[in-house]
Design a binder for these strands. Sequence first.
RNA 1: GGACCGGUAGCUCAGCUGGAUAGAGCAGCUGCCUUCUAAGCAGCAGGUCAUUGGUUCGAAUCCAAUCCGGUUCACCA
Length: 591
Amino acid sequence: MSVVSQIKTVTAAAIHQLYGVELQPLDILVNATKPEFEGDYTVVLFAFVKQLKKSPDALGQELGNELVTKNRALFASFNVIKGFLNLSVSESYWLEFLSREYNNPLFGTAFPKGDKVMVEYSSPNTNKPLHLGHLRNNFLGWSIAAILKATGHDVVKTCIVNDRGIHICKSMVAWQLFANGATPKSTGIKGDHFVGDYYVKFNDEYKKQVEELQLAGGSKEEAEKEAPIMRAAQQMLLDWEAGKPDVMLLWRNMNSWVYEGFSKTYQRIGSDFDKTYYESDTYLLGKDLVDMGLKKGVFYQKEDGSVWIDLTADGLDEKLVRRRDGTSVYMTQDIGLAELKQKEFNADQSIYVVGDEQNYHFKVLKLICQKLGLPSADGIYHLSYGMVELPSGKMKSREGTVVDADDLVDEMVAIARQKTEELGKVKDFTPAELEALYDTIGLGALKFFLLRVDPKKRMVFNPEESIDFHGFTGPFIQYTHARIKSILRKAEFPAEKIQAATLLPVEKELAIQLEMFPATLLDAGADHDPSKLAIYIFNLAKVFNSFYTEHSIANAESDEKKQLRLQLAQLTAQVIKTGMGVLGIDVPERM
RNA sequence: GGACCGGUAGCUCAGCUGGAUAGAGCAGCUGCCUUCUAAGCAGCAGGUCAUUGGUUCGAAUCCAAUCCGGUUCACCA
């Protein structure tokens, strides 16, 4: 149990003992003591002075006495200032903590809980390559899955590929018109980019045709409908739905090119999935659920035959679930897919990593599933994240301001290379080791930058300035790790059991930080928020760096001190490795 | 118009289940490499926490109103 939890528990017990009042440990507020006061943790007393009919000062004195006398292993002393009870944790507690955990590679992780969580993320369209927004999605999804895994949940990672629809048909039509049989192989272009280029070509041509039609005297709306290339795309969608052989062949071909490209990108950024769903397989799902909903009276039918659900009582609107022509809509597919997932995996929780522009959609999805009585309904959780914007504003594909994922990764790795070469610390690395190091640092910087921000907030990505390798960044933490490893390589180990060393302020601060790791990991998982972990690791690295500059480990004042510092250093490296690991970030032994 | 999200230092962000004098990083300015990796450390400077009211021992945090920005409310996905 974490120190903070222990303090809450014993405080609740002490209050019960002294005053006969039952309090929940969770109701007790425990903070880190402000540096200007003596103590490590502070119990805030104001909340119960009224209930206990005591002055803050008297309460603090009595409670402090009780806590310290009854918990000698935990507390060394206390003081009371206004309504704050400051507690000093005994040094032996930290020393024991260190000797217990410093060599435990699983520190922070939890035993299996026996429940299952699905995480759906990435979910690309197959008409264009991945961009910066997808990167945030992928990093978030992968990371939250890893955090949940580390905290004892069974995790299934899934991806739904949007492999059908009008957008793919656009790329297909443009390819037919302009490619002259070209392929990724014949042109040497990565498959997803190749197909994306034809999507761009489609839009260029479409725009031209609309302008021409307007010049010929048509209205804008008419021109947009009548443009031959748009009509061709719509016809192709119909042909696809009819299963026309040559269209299916082209569709399979172009998608296979895209998948080839995607798999390279996924491999590079470290995304992987246990199960991939394809919309072409799932888009007809959910139809029988509409009938069931009608029977149950959850849905109702309008005169034209379309089927709706009325969510006005829940503060939402009416929502269509089946068109008048009998075809299903996006929502219907998603209900069907939710049911399919439940049948196949029966997860307790189902997390969807999807942008916040779909907040409404997922609110409705969950509500409908609940009203239909699907067993998985209550476990639906939308991990909503904000847009990534550029300093110039939103990314717009039409204006060519979309930051391509592959380009960005290449750029980050190139910067890593350049900085590493400038510093010249790893001249003895083999070329292969160097390449691996550049990847580790470049991707580490990028992932950390996107994960350090609260997912639900939109964020600004500044290509010139945002990616720095100093300060609150991935490389800063990686560097801290490499420095520790360098010391550990040279030091003789294992450390002996520490007898009665006294902790200097920075040493204790470091121990306190390290002790917080398991609770922080748990928190990040429960809140579906990797940024909490990213911030924690950064703080840990910062404390370590202060410690490192202030005190020598290898040449410590005494052997005992040396052993103590080696334990601190080793556990710090361990926590950084585990913590960064679940963010999807590698840490190098040297850099 | 309804619903939801956000507004904290020049910039990017923490802090938000109410707690002590609001914190980091970047950018700016000072120092520190004959000692374990200076991708580092120490320090200075920088704030009407959008505005106005309210709740109370105490509000960046909770409530209300207002202003600004965003998203969404399609027989699109």
